[in-house]
Design a protein around this nucleic acid. Structure first.
Lengths: 178, 178
DNA sequence: TCCGACTATGCAACCAGTTGCAGTACTGTA
DNA sequence: TACAGTACTGCAACTGGTTGCATAGTCGGA
């Protein structure tokens, strides 16, 4: 159950509401862990019951129902406990490879446009990551441990997109001349 | 619903039983699409109902219940239709990144051993892929379209593992000296 | 001849994640 | 003041995937 732990991490970085969490998930942690607002609300409810977090009406709430969640000591302990666990590698699961294999067994199915589209999507992501890198991580030998780790995580995304772009370029060559 | 299409592809390559499909999934297609025998049996049932495949008692069955599934024209059409669809990129979802981020916000949580373990797992996979490559894809300018595509798919796995190994090496450096 | 390992299939329950929909309050604009 | 848009929370139903368990036959070895 990592969503809870992703939320704990995010809340430790900054106490906030379910809605804000959902939006922040679209950036930062969301590059490696996605969640809809539905999941987030449900999970926040469970976590509060478990005594990991508590919620108070948000000071910025005005008359809305907005609530601010913050991490309790129990939640922090739980996060530390969980972080030390070992876990299996994420599994590679890409339906495009299935399509390719279908194309191989049946014969040309016109996958080239889709291939180009996917390459472009990866290029978009890479560009976005590079922009974040340029903005938030200027070269700095004195950077704090926290910053260095955040940069490292971003580099995982960069490395991932670059790898796929290179592969899609090769794939383009194979499908064009075959 | 890609599992059905992965199964169709696999059955087109070779008609076989649910059990054999499950085992073949552990290799080839399974590098990019995993499924348990449970899922497979359930899905084969649906596909037969849909008229995409048919099953006959397996000739090698002896007195067991073993059945051989093969693709009907309707299944082939469905696969062709589906292959031309476009689909979103698979999402990167790696809980280790959440752990790293927790380590960044709380302070050193002793992630180094886990980091080494994960690097080793990637190295194992890479070695396995390289072995398959050496065995099944000797350099051959005359290789068929099908072989070239299969090789391409394998290279996606190789590229993926190599990227992560490089990243884990860098991560090792960051966590050691911080 | 009994036993354990393996092949082969399947039911039932559960869980995480997704989708569709809805309600409520605020904010700006015509 | 009416209306559109959007911030914010939530319910209910569904889907795909996982887990635990059950069953039944085959085969080799103690």
């Amino acid at each position: 159950m990592s969503l809870a732990h992703a939320l704990l991490t995010s809340l430790l970085e900054q106490a906030s509401s379910g809605y804000d969490l959902a939006r922040r998930f679209d950036k930062s942690i969301g590059h490696f862990w996605q969640a809809t607002h539905q999941q987030i609300y449900r999970e926040l409810g469970r976590m509060e019951k478990a005594g990991w977090i508590r919620s108070t009406p948000d000071p910025d709430a005005g008359r809305t129902r907005k609530r601010r969640y913050s991490v309790l000591p129990g939640g922090r302990d739980e996060l530390m406990r969980w972080a030390a666990e070992s876990a299996p590698l994420p599994e590679l699961r890409d339906e495009f490879m299935v399509r390719l294999r279908a194309d191989a067994v049946i014969g040309p199915l016109g996958l080239l446009p889709e291939l180009g589209r996917r390459r472009a999507l990866h290029a978009d992501k890479l560009r976005a990551y590079r922009a974040i890198e340029a903005r938030d991580f200027p070269p700095d030998p004195q950077a704090s441990r926290q910053r260095r780790i955040h940069h490292l995580i971003l580099k995982a995304g960069i490395q991932y997109e670059e790898g796929w772009i290179a592969w899609y370029d090769e794939a383009l060559g194979v499908l064009e001349h075959a």
